[in-house]
């Protein structure tokens, strides 16, 4: 339980948003408005949604991801979902959201996964 929060990191064209906590209808409302003002301000080419810190998500989270996908399309970018836990992954797959947005999984476990993968991804995108 408890409020869901997010932190973000901006690198060039990329915006990486790391969500933490439970994503339900209650928390999605706050995350959505906070994230949207950020997206309009930064206008990134790609939004990474890091879900490694989220251990519960219901269909409100699906709405949140789909909404951000639509917004990113509008400003000419895309969305990548990173490291959903098994429970969150099942909800995503149930809705077929994995066909709409790319899901990235780091090879290592949750701890310290960030750097090697993001570097690799960046290179892949920039070439």
């Amino acid at each position: 339980m408890g409020r869901a929060t997010f932190t973000y990191e901006e690198t060039g064209y990329f915006l990486r948003v790391k969500l933490k906590g439970d994503i339900d209808h209650h928390s999605a409302v706050a995350i959505r408005s906070g994230m949207d003002s950020l997206l309009y301000k930064i206008r990134p080419r790609r939004l990474y949604l890091d879900l490694s810190g989220v251990d519960f998500m219901d269909s409100s989270g699906l709405g949140l991801i789909m909404g951000r996908y639509a917004l990113m399309k509008e400003i000419g970018g895309d969305v990548v979902v990173c490291d959903p836990c098994p429970g969150v992954d099942r909800v995503i797959k149930l809705a077929g959201l994995d066909k709409l947005v790319r899901i990235e999984r780091s090879k290592t476990d949750a701890a310290g996964q960030d750097k090697p993968r993001s570097r690799r991804v960046r290179k892949e995108v920039l070439k």
Binding site: A28, D58, S59, S60, L62, G63, G67, V91, L94, A95
Partner: peptide
């Protein structure tokens, strides 16, 4: 029905009953 919602503006995904059933 999957994806049916009466509240699209509120970003409801319409997957609530589908999740419950699954």
């Amino acid at each position: 029905q999957p994806l049916f919602t009466t509240d699209a503006a509120g970003e409801r995904s319409g997957m609530g009953f589908t999740v419950m059933e699954s």
